[in-house]
Design a protein around this nucleic acid. Structure first.
Lengths: 138, 138
DNA sequence: AGAATTAATGCACTTCCGTTGCATACTTAA
DNA sequence: TTAAGTATGCAACGGAAGTGCATTAATTCT
C-alpha cells in the first residue's frame, strides 16, 4: 500500500484512500474494468467519485482507457515503464466474446502502416475479438 | 434511383422511399455517418425509422457499422463486392481529430498477427486517428 | 496551531445515444 | 378484397457520460 502511495505521488496524484483502493482493485485484476465494475466492488463509494478517480488516473498516465467496441469505456493500468504520453498505448487489446472481458496484449504492438498521402496518424486503436485463452480451454 | 431500388432488392431489403433516400444520402457522402447525421438531413423522418433503416442495412450487408472511438456508432456503405459476411470488413478506418469525420481506407487491410496460445480471433477493429487528407492540406 | 486556500468527495440532475413496445399505415400475397 | 406481413410513427425507457454545486478533507501560509 505504501508503494502504491509513493507511485501515485510520483505521478502527481494525491494518494487518497479512495484512490489507493481503486488502484489496488485495478492492479489485482487481469482484465480491463468498466466504471460499473469498479462501482460494483465499492458499493459504498459514489459513482461520480469513482468516475473522476478513473479520469484523474487517465490524465496522469496511470491507466489507459480502452474502447473495445462494446460501447463502454474500460480502464486498465499502464504497464510499468509505459510512457503513455509518448507511445500512446499502441498495443493490442483483445475482447473475448464469451466472457466479455478485455485484456491488454502489451507485447503486441500495432504494426506500422504507410497511409495514403495527406493522412497523418498519431494514434491508433486496435481490438481483436474472439475467444480468449481462458475461455478456449473449456 | 432505379439502380438503388434493384440493389436493395438484391440484398433482400424492400426498397421503400425512406430507404432509397437514406441509401442515396450515404452514397453521396464520403465519410461515415452517425444516426444524428442522417437525422439532421431528414428532418421530416422519425429517428426510430432511420435507426431501424440503418440496422436493416447493416443486417443485410449494405452498410457496416464503424466504432471509431468517439463512442457514437457510424455507418458507411459497403464497397461493391465486399462480402461482408465472410470478410467482416477487415479494413482500416481513419478518424480525423480536426474535422471529426471517419472514413474507410478500404485498400488497407488489417495486418495479420500471431496471437498468444489460446487466443482465437475472428474479428478485428482498427482505427487510426490523426489528421485526414482534406484537413492536412489547409 | 489556526486560518485560508485548494483539492476531493457526495448528491442531484442533465444529456445523449441506443433501444423497445405498441398502435397505425402501408404492401404483398392469397 | 381480405388477410398477413412489413414498415413507420410515437412514446417511453435505460445506461453511460458528464456537470454544478455544496460539503468535507487535506495542504499551505502566517
Amino acid at each position: 500500500m505504501a508503494q502504491i502511495e509513493d507511485f501515485l505521488e510520483s505521478k502527481g496524484v494525491r494518494p487518497t484512500a479512495m484512490r489507493l483502493l481503486v488502484f489496488k482493485y485495478l492492479a489485482d485484476r487481469q482484465a480491463a474494468a468498466t466504471l460499473s465494475d469498479v462501482e460494483a466492488s465499492f458499493s459504498k463509494a459514489e459513482r461520480t467519485t469513482l468516475y473522476r478517480t478513473l479520469k484523474t488516473f487517465e490524465e496522469n498516465s496511470i491507466v489507459h482507457q480502452i474502447d473495445d467496441g462494446t460501447g463502454i469505456s474500460k480502464y486498465a493500468l499502464c504497464e510499468e515503464g509505459c510512457n503513455c504520453d509518448l507511445e500512446r498505448h499502441l498495443h493490442l487489446h483483445f475482447h473475448c466474446n464469451k466472457c466479455d472481458e478485455t485484456v491488454c496484449l502489451t507485447d503486441y504492438k500495432i504494426p506500422p502502416l504507410n497511409l495514403p498521402k495527406g493522412f497523418i496518424a498519431n494514434d491508433a486503436n486496435m481490438v481483436l475479438k474472439g475467444i480468449c485463452d481462458k475461455c478456449s480451454q473449456n
